[in-house]
Simulated scan of single mutants.
Amino acid sequence: MNETNFIDMLNCPQEYMLQAGGEYELISEMSFLRSIVKYKNCKIIIYGAGQRCEYLISWLKMENVPVEFVLDQDIKKHNHKVNNCIIYHIDKVPEELRGKKYLVLVSTVYYETETKKILYALFQNGLKNIIYPFDKQYNLAPYRYDWAYYYLHHKDELLQIYKELEDDRSRDILFEYVKALVTNCVYRGGHSKTCNKYFDEYIPLENENFLNIGSYVGDTIFYFIENRQEQFEKIYAVEGESGIYQRLCENIAILPRVLQEKIELTNTYLNATNSKYYADKKITLINMDIEGMEKEVIVGLSECIKKNRPVLAICAYHKPEDIVELPLLIHEIVDNYKIKFRKYAPPYSNHLENGELVMYAIPAERSKEEK
């Protein structure tokens, strides 16, 4: 995949929707929406007046699908506007609007689990003529709109990252990843083996000092120990959630004493401040999977990174801006690092193919391509 294809995809995603195939294309869903509005003589309303709603309205406008009004349960938002659409509290919809026919789109993070409750609440508040068309066959995954909106409004930054990537495989993965999100299609790029996640794109060290941030129950630690054939100097394992941390401790206790003694366990959520604890530690490898806090923690680890020049293997799929801001941040902190992307999760469903994208930031002296 070349630079021209990448630019074309960002400038005209509709063309790639038609090429992608599969059953989940956004273009089909928008046609379906427009048909319902036309043939059922109804108006579109959105439930949930958060950031997802703002992006969803923008996307619908681009597709010439107008929104009548927005509903929310937060009384403070009543009579305010989001993206020029009026917001009504669910209990305060004007009487003259209650008898009309509406197609409701749910834009909250509770889309999967709360839809029935939301529709029942609408019915109880007099909005009885509701069409809710999106079941498993027609399912607008709301989080996609903020991702698509971000990418289509940051084309220059995306192109910069694309051109600076270390290898063609990374460029192909980035192309397919962004395409899946701006077209609402299934990710069709390549995947690497999960057992190699964080460990297969750089030259390993015999005396690796591994900072494992977001250790969960220890799965990555066990992968690491197996991958390095038990040869390492130190593991710093950090997990914030107390219940999961307890399971982590129990799992580490399975290991031989000689390995346990080389593992330092910490129950905390790292941030830009407390991550400075590692500034004076010898760290040669860092991985993070911390639900969107990656950028903040990298900032906190900047002195550690400058001093030690570790390999970084960072999850880059929790926020749409991760694939742009994380590589740029690494280049701000330290020179002569190579950036790669690798994708690990198989496409189990239409909701998960933007997951398990890892950014590798590799110092030139540990890059396989340099040797």
Score class of each variant (00 low, 15 high):
100 K>F: 11
59 W>K: 04
93 V>G: 11
160 Q>N: 15
194 T>P: 00
175 F>D: 00
90 I>K: 07
92 K>T: 07
141 A>R: 05
150 Y>W: 12
70 V>G: 00
187 Y>E: 04
127 L>D: 00
183 T>W: 00
114 E>M: 14
107 S>A: 15
72 D>V: 00
79 N>V: 05
174 L>H: 01
170 S>H: 06
118 I>W: 05
189 G>R: 15
94 P>R: 06
105 L>N: 00
92 K>L: 13
58 S>P: 00
83 N>I: 08
154 H>A: 09
118 I>H: 04
113 T>A: 14
128 K>D: 08
100 K>M: 10
64 N>K: 13
146 D>F: 00
79 N>F: 07
60 L>Q: 08
70 V>A: 05
179 K>C: 08
95 E>Q: 09
182 V>W: 04
144 R>T: 07
64 N>T: 06
119 L>S: 01
149 Y>E: 02
188 R>K: 15
147 W>E: 07
193 K>H: 11
152 L>M: 12
65 V>E: 07
71 L>Y: 05
97 L>S: 08
138 Y>S: 01
196 N>T: 12
124 Q>W: 12
162 Y>C: 03
179 K>R: 14
185 C>G: 13
192 S>V: 04
116 K>E: 15
92 K>C: 05
120 Y>A: 08
171 R>L: 07
84 N>T: 11
118 I>F: 14
133 P>G: 06
89 H>T: 08
198 Y>E: 04
87 I>F: 01
140 L>A: 05
152 L>E: 01
128 K>G: 13
60 L>V: 09
193 K>D: 13
147 W>K: 02
100 K>T: 09
150 Y>Q: 04
186 V>H: 06
79 N>Q: 15
63 E>D: 04
199 F>S: 03
73 Q>E: 08
184 N>I: 04
115 T>Y: 09
191 H>I: 15
181 L>C: 12
73 Q>I: 13
56 L>V: 00
105 L>D: 02
139 N>Y: 08
145 Y>Q: 13
163 K>Y: 08
95 E>H: 09
150 Y>S: 10
78 H>W: 01
153 H>F: 07
178 V>Y: 06
158 L>V: 10
153 H>Y: 09
53 C>H: 02
145 Y>H: 11
113 T>S: 14
159 L>M: 11
135 D>G: 11
